[in-house]
Computed example of a mutant assay.
Amino acid sequence: MDVVLDDTDIKILSLIQGNARISNADLAREVNMAPSAVLERVKKLEQKKVIIQYNAVINPAAVQQKLLAFIFIKSKEGFTCSTDMAKKLAAIPEVQEVHHIAGEDCFLVKVRTADSAGLMQLMRNKLQKIPNILSTKTTIVLETAKEDHQLVIPKKNETA
């Protein structure tokens, strides 16, 4: 996807990413533009799929999702892991991320559950039912030093 972004687009993206609830008036003030012009820019960024969605980041512990784990999944299909398996993994509510990876395994999956019993239930009742999973390796996170959902948005002159 080759989308050309100017300095104003980049500033808008940085501001929205920092606070998705920023008002259009505040956004316009920050980029020194008329609110109508900023609104048009934001709509174009949405249409071009630069801005995909707006989210609230929720503390997992507040909703009893205290256990974070990463599961490496090896498929019987080998390196040609199917998109069907990826879709089945992505359809599991506890699964937050599904990554097709290079190396011995096919997928790296990030999951959150209430506790180890919830993780075991996920493995037995959901993952085990997906055809062609050869093996899994699970890593449980003990403590998180950093978890950031924001991208580094390079300045216009930093892009290569």
Results as ranks from 00 to 15, higher is better:
I16G: 08
N125L: 04
K156R: 15
K11W: 10
R124G: 00
K66P: 05
I130V: 07
L45D: 02
T159R: 09
M1C: 05
K11D: 13
K76Q: 15
L151R: 14
K74E: 02
A160N: 13
D9G: 02
L127C: 00
A86I: 06
T139R: 12
V141N: 04
I140V: 13
L39A: 06
T8P: 05
I92M: 02
F72C: 05
N55C: 15
S75P: 07
A160F: 09
F79H: 06
N132S: 09
N32Y: 11
M85T: 00
E94L: 00
R112S: 03
K155I: 07
S116T: 14
A25N: 12
H100C: 01
T139G: 08
N157M: 07
S75T: 09
A86H: 12
A69N: 14
P131K: 04
K87P: 01
D105K: 07
K74R: 04
H99M: 08
V63C: 12
T113A: 06
N125G: 12
L89M: 04
I10T: 01
K49A: 07
S116P: 00
L68P: 01
N24V: 13
E94N: 02
V98D: 03
L142M: 02
E158H: 09
N24M: 10
R21V: 13
A69D: 13
S36Y: 09
I51K: 15
V63D: 08
N24D: 12
R124S: 02
R21A: 15
T138P: 00
A69M: 14
E143F: 15
K49Y: 13
A160L: 06
T83A: 06
K49Q: 14
T139A: 13
N32Q: 15
R21C: 10
K49H: 15
K110L: 05
R41M: 03
L134R: 05
T144E: 06
L134M: 03
N24G: 13
K87A: 05
V111A: 15
F70G: 00
R124P: 01
L45V: 00
E104R: 09
S14Y: 11
L119K: 07
S75H: 14
S116A: 15
M85Q: 01
L67F: 15
R112L: 09
T136Q: 04
I16F: 12
L27N: 03
L45G: 03
L119N: 05
K146Y: 06
M33L: 14
K66R: 11
D6T: 01
L67A: 13
E46P: 03
L15Q: 06
D105Q: 10
M33F: 06
T139W: 07
L119S: 11
Q64F: 11
A25G: 10
Q96I: 04
P35D: 14
A145K: 08
I140L: 15
V63L: 10
K74V: 02
A56T: 09
N24R: 12
K87S: 10
K88L: 02
I133Q: 01
N19V: 03
N32L: 07
Q150I: 06
V109E: 02
T136K: 05
V50H: 13
G118W: 15
A34G: 11
K110Y: 03
P60Y: 08
R124T: 00
F79K: 09
L13G: 11
L39V: 01
C81W: 01
E94P: 00
L122N: 05
L127M: 00
I58S: 03
A69H: 09
K155S: 11
K43T: 14
D148C: 10
D2R: 09
I10F: 03
Q128K: 12
A37K: 11
A56S: 10
T113L: 12
